[in-house]
Amino acid sequence: MTVSYDSVAVGDELPAQSFAVTRATLVQYAGASGDFNPIHWNEKFAKEVGLPDVIAHGMFTMASAARVVTDWAGDPGAVVDYGVRFTKPVVVANDDRGAVIEVSGKIAAKDDEARTVRVDLTAVSDGQKVLGMARATVRLA
């Protein structure tokens, strides 16, 4: 079911979601994306280049946040614009827990002429904001 433009208001919150990220998740994403940079799977290499540990792919983090919007809208094609700034990496420990990306969203603006809403997203991992200026423009029916 898709969301109706008339049924939403500025300030409405989207259902928050949490995304578990393990080392296995990173290997799967590397295979799907073709991004085999060792900072995403080799702990020794990641630390040698100054990172605290292996980190999640930025595009994986960005896609996780977008999922909150597409799940809410009911139609991935409704997203007409999406952008973020990467503020902190998602550090993925080599244990059973890995990391968790917690994402929330809120309708920040409506454009009656275009029938779009701007959704501002917040993405946090380990208490740190990992995306800044995360915004999606969504065209609603």
Rank of each mutant, 00 (worst) to 15 (best):
V3T: 13
V3K: 09
S4Y: 06
S4E: 15
Y5S: 06
Y5M: 08
D6A: 14
D6S: 15
D6C: 03
V8R: 08
V8F: 04
A9G: 10
V10E: 10
V10D: 06
G11W: 07
D12W: 00
D12H: 09
E13P: 11
L14Y: 10
P15K: 09
A16F: 12
A16I: 13
F19Y: 15
F19Q: 02
F19K: 02
V21W: 04
V21K: 02
V21P: 02
T22L: 02
T22E: 02
A24E: 15
A24R: 10
T25H: 11
T25N: 12
V27S: 12
V27A: 12
Q28E: 13
Y29Q: 06
Y29P: 13
Y29T: 05
Y29H: 13
A30L: 00
A30W: 03
G31W: 02
G31T: 08
A32W: 05
S33Q: 06
G34P: 10
G34A: 01
P38A: 00
H40M: 03
H40L: 00
N42R: 03
E43Y: 01
E43D: 15
F45E: 02
A46S: 07
A46I: 01
V49T: 11
G50K: 00
P52Y: 06
V54H: 01
I55T: 05
I55M: 02
A56S: 03
G58F: 04
M59N: 11
F60C: 12
F60Q: 05
T61S: 15
M62S: 14
S64I: 01
A65I: 09
A66L: 13
A66C: 08
R67S: 14
R67G: 14
R67Q: 15
T70E: 08
D71S: 15
W72Y: 04
W72N: 02
A73D: 02
G74L: 05
D75V: 01
D75M: 05
P76N: 03
P76A: 09
G77L: 07
G77A: 15
A78Y: 01
V80C: 12
D81W: 04
Y82L: 14
Y82C: 09
G83R: 13
V84K: 06
R85I: 09
F86T: 07
K88E: 14
K88N: 14
P89M: 06
V91T: 11
V92C: 03
A93N: 11
D95C: 03
R97L: 08
R97F: 08
A99S: 10
I101L: 15
V103T: 11
S104D: 10
G105P: 14
G105C: 06
K106I: 15
A108W: 01
A109C: 07
K110A: 03
K110W: 00
K110H: 10
K110F: 03
D111A: 05
D111Q: 08
D111R: 14
E113T: 10
A114G: 07
R115L: 02
T116K: 05
T116D: 00
V117M: 00
V117C: 02
V119G: 00
D120N: 12
D120F: 06
D120L: 08
D120S: 13
L121V: 09
A123H: 07
V124C: 14
D126L: 07
D126S: 13
Q128F: 10
Q128C: 07
K129P: 05
K129E: 13
K129D: 12
L131M: 12
A134Q: 07
A134H: 09
R135W: 09
A136L: 07
T137R: 13
T137L: 08
V138K: 03
R139G: 01
L140M: 05
A141E: 15
A141G: 15
